[in-house]
Amino acid sequence: MKGWNLTLIAPFQIDLDASSLSAVGTCDYEHEVCSITLISSRPDRSFVVGDWFKVRPGTDDHVTIHGDVRFLHQLGYGWTESTLRIEGDVGTGLGATMRSGCIEVFGNTMASAGWQMRGGEIRISGDTGDYLGGPLPGRRSGMSGGRIVVNGNAGHHAGHCMRRGTIVLQGDCGDGVGTDMVAGTIVAGGTVGEFVGAGMRRGTVILAKAPAIDLIRFSSPRDVDLSFTRLIASELASVVPEIAEAMHRPMSRYLGDRSVGGQGEILVMRPKVAAQR
């Protein structure tokens, strides 16, 4: 696959559906990239990549977008194999249904990043919006594979309806982490809002900071020392070393959501015990 550098010429003033931009990997010439159509929210106008971006061949097989593209939605839709790098903010639906490869964002993303993604990895250096790794509108299952790592904060309902895969949140996140989760793993290093795991049937939510957990929906906590958390910690050691280190310690485990007959689990890491003098 050939790499490309796309540099934003002028700031966006209109929302564009950039899902067609995922075909950039099949392009051999600049004019082919420039002629990719971007569907706009204005039915009377159609745009192509060349209207907004200066296109240059890349030195490797990465596709790099330079500039604030927060009005560019569904970027990396169905992405496979190679790396998409965005140096700036991005709109909604980043990496929706992506299958493999990597999407790196050096900035923030709006809502619904990793919608129904199936594989690969999304790394977001800044903050992200609501419904991270959630389902496409009208669907009942969220991400079913791959990994999302957010260095900043996340909005509400991260991992809503998640089926498989891993979400790692280093910062704080809003309400409803892991709601209606079916399987998969969410690791949150910061504070979380209310309704953690509400409606979850299976899956694992691992929290560094103890939230208010509804003990009607979830069982009373039990202290556990589980081997699989050490495996996850090893996998995440290079990504989030501090969180990974804490995952080697025993945790408190809540089972539920009992209101839906769920067998999911919320694991809360224990704080490191200070050495006594």
């Binding site: 895969g165 694992t204 556990v224 020392d225 081997s227 699989f228 090893s234 996998e235």
Partner: peptide, 23 residues
């Protein structure tokens, strides 16, 4: 009551037993 987990590209089974879990 067994739980499946995919970690690092491999699938694991967590089977509840009397001393915790058999991974």
């Amino acid at each position: 009551y067994q739980i499946s987990k995919r970690i690092g590209g491999s699938r694991f089974w967590r089977i509840p037993v009397m001393d915790g879990e058999f991974l």
